[in-house]
Design a protein around this nucleic acid. Structure first.
Length: 634
DNA sequence: TCCCAGAAGGTTTTT
DNA sequence: CCTTCTGGGA
């Protein structure tokens, strides 16, 4: 791959690392104005941003020392974009892309400039972060609020505030007034009381991420110096998954960048908007286009799914947006027979047995791995896992509930933790036979943690010797995986002390707060000892640890952005889709997201035992109108 | 302490 | 849609 640090002329720039881009994508890559890119599933939205970053950096359209800011929702999306750009660009170029989550961006602003906030809104420098579940708005509203002044209202007015919408509507519902609310409603008064006690009620302030977002917006509104510094720093802004942008995020971006020369590219798919219930804006694209004079540019290609699945997707897409254009299927189909069907079962038990046998048979006959399949559910993954897991185990296929808890940490979260990744890499290096690539991985990571430059041969060599010695020692002490949790924990502790706990905390700010690092390490120990049980060897234990040969089970929401050869949606019934009437568009969007994860095949299962199919009849009608058959299986 | 009726939850990310 | 929690009363 061409990795150049000198500039390329814009007219000579070519996309890097992909065969081609469709015309509109290339247009967006080279654009110099604000764009909202609406693109369906599999259109290559992240790839478009990666190519645009490469173009701007390599042609000098984002001129040094100015930078590109890429804001994502989720950590993995932010990391994914950064690594794609790093693959395509010289280190000097890639280093001018700041790819981060919205929350990391807002927190960074508060950490840098927060002390410049007016006293009434100023958090302590060592403020703590409050996560959902660590606060109780019900208790606050019912028990901790005093009586309001007569000008605000009565005690009964306060009790009338809905607990469920207090945070969304009052606490972080709108931009914060610099001098406080001048004529507060009962809701605003209660919100202000909460703000003041969170900021000034104890030695350290306690803030949630939505609150940090609101404070960051206020900070930049009242502090033109900080705001101008950002405008000057960033020549370009990317926003991924824009359909799920919240008002808090939008307001911050608007305060910083509206009416400036910073060029914004917002990318997403309004047909995949499934977060409105969690504060996402109603029509973010239209608002953005109106406020920023952005041009809408759709993408038409689908690089993910077979032509037959793309055809069915289009039927669903039209239910969400009558004007949606038919995508161009770019991937080939590989399934003989039905690429989509509805399977009826007499019981959840029969369903589990049959699905497990089906997956096992498909793996065998078509050389597929369990990771080519996904079991999707609407909600309560644990309930489904309880029935499906034994059936798949009977076929020799482990099932992994991504939302399952290991100790106090969700499995999916645990495996994505930096500390956890490092531990696995070091274990692989030390105890596995084919450990080649882990040497480079560990060496790079440890060099980063210790601040050793890539070209510092002396220190790099010393690090390599230390790693080598540590690996030999570990091999000798743990010839087989640890048999109990205490053993696993002491193994992990010795790895952590080699890495350097302080260095870990310094490099990853998340470990600075609370007992998160210890929660992660404890969960890692628990998981390691469970995976090593039953006298398996190290390779097998670590494969299980990483879920390499397990079929994943997850909710639709967790599957967003992922893709699989075959999608098996378990439970297409009224029970699972209880909220269907509340917001039919959003529910159908969820259905669309589930369907569009598949590259080759989608199966829906139903059993009357779990519920009817009258409330969601429109979903069944859609499938029927796309020619999909229902089969009574067992 | 138990029972009952009505309310609430479920689908999420983030250092 | 079904399950679990909550508060008030016995």
């Amino acid at each position: 791959m061409a990795v150049l640090s000198r500039h390329v002329r814009p007219d000579q720039w070519e996309p890097v690392g992909v065969a081609s881009l469709e015309a509109n994508a290339l247009d967006v890559v080279r654009s110099g104005d604000n764009r909202s890119v609406i693109a369906g599933p599999g259109a290559g939205k992240t790839e478009l941003l990666a190519q645009r970053a490469a173009y701007l950096l390599q042609t000098g359209s984002a001129p040094r020392p100015r930078r590109i800011l890429a804001i994502s929702f989720k950590r993995d999306a932010a990391v994914n974009l950064a690594s794609r750009v790093a693959q395509r660009c010289h280190r000097d170029h890639a280093g001018r892309l700041d790819s981060m989550t919205f929350d990391a961006f807002a927190k960074g602003l508060i950490d840098r400039f927060g002390q410049a906030l007016p006293a009434r809104w100023r958090p302590t420098p060592d403020y703590e972060i409050i996560f959902p579940g660590e606060r109780d708005f019900r208790d606050y509203l019912q028990n901790q609020l005093g009586s309001p002044p007569a000008s605000v209202g009565t005690y009964a007015d306060l009790q009338a505030i809905a607990v469920k919408s207090f945070e969304r509507r009052h606490l972080v519902g709108s931009r914060l007034p610099v001098g406080g609310w001048s004529n507060p409603t009962p809701g605003q008064w209660a919100a202000d009381q909460y703000w003041q006690s969170s900021l000034h009620g104890s030695v350290t302030s306690h803030l949630s991420f939505p609150m940090i977002g609101r404070l960051a917006e206020l900070l930049l509104r009242v502090n033109p110096m900080a705001r101008d510094a950002l405008r000057l720093t960033y020549s370009h802004l990317f926003m991924d998954e824009f359909q799920d942008t919240t008002q808090i995020q939008y307001d911050l971006v608007q305060t910083i960048f509206m009416g400036t020369g910073t060029v914004i590219t917002a990318v997403g798919d309004n047909k995949q908007q499934i977060m409105r219930w969690a504060m996402a804006m109603d029509a973010p694209f239209a608002t953005f286009e109106a406020d920023f004079g952005a041009t809408r540019t759709p993408l038409y290609n689908n690089y993910r799914s077979s032509p037959d699945l793309v055809r069915i997707q289009h039927v669903l897409a039209q239910a969400l947006d009558t004007k949606s254009a038919k995508p161009v299927a770019m991937a080939a189909g590989s399934i003989t027979g039905e690429s989509c069907a509805i399977w009826d079962f007499s019981s959840a038990q029969a369903e589990a047995t049959h699905l497990a046998a089906f997956v096992a048979a498909e793996m065998k006959s078509h050389g597929l791995s369990p990771r080519d399949f996904v079991l999707l559910v609407r909600q309560k993954a644990g309930d489904y896992a309880a029935v499906l897991e034994p059936a798949f185990a009977a076929q020799g296929i482990p099932l992994r509930n991504e939302a399952g808890m290991v100790g106090h940490v969700m499995l999916q979260e645990l495996l994505a933790e930096d500390a956890c990744e490092l531990i696995v890499e070091i274990l692989r290096l030390a105890v596995c036979k084919a450990s080649g690539r882990y040497w480079t991985l560990c060496q790079d990571r440890l060099a980063f943690l210790r601040g050793i430059a890539p070209d510092d041969d002396g220190d790099q060599a010393r690090l390599a010797r230390e790693l080598d010695g540590f690996a030999l020692d570990l091999q000798a002490r743990y010839p087989i995986p640890p048999a109990n949790k205490a053993n696993a924990r002491s193994l992990i502790d010795s790895i952590i002390s080699m890495i350097g706990r302080d260095r870990l905390i310094a490099a990853y700010p998340a470990y600075r707060q609370g007992g998160w690092l210890d929660k992660v390490l404890d969960a890692a120990a628990e998981h390691l000892h469970l995976c090593g049980a039953g006298g398996v060897n190290w390779d097998a234990a670590l494969d299980t640890y990483e879920g390499l040969h397990a079929i994943p089970l997850m909710t639709i929401h967790k599957s967003k952005g992922l893709e699989y050869h075959s999608v098996i949606f378990v439970g297409l019934d009224d029970g699972a889709w209880w909220s269907f009437d509340k917001d039919q568009i959003e529910a159908t969007a969820g259905f669309f997201v589930a369907f569009t994860r598949a590259k080759q095949r989608v199966l829906f299962t139903y059993t009357a035992h779990r519920g009817n199919r009258s409330k969601i009849a429109t979903l069944y009608d859609l499938l029927r109108s796309a020619g999909i058959q229902t089969h009574q299986i067992a």
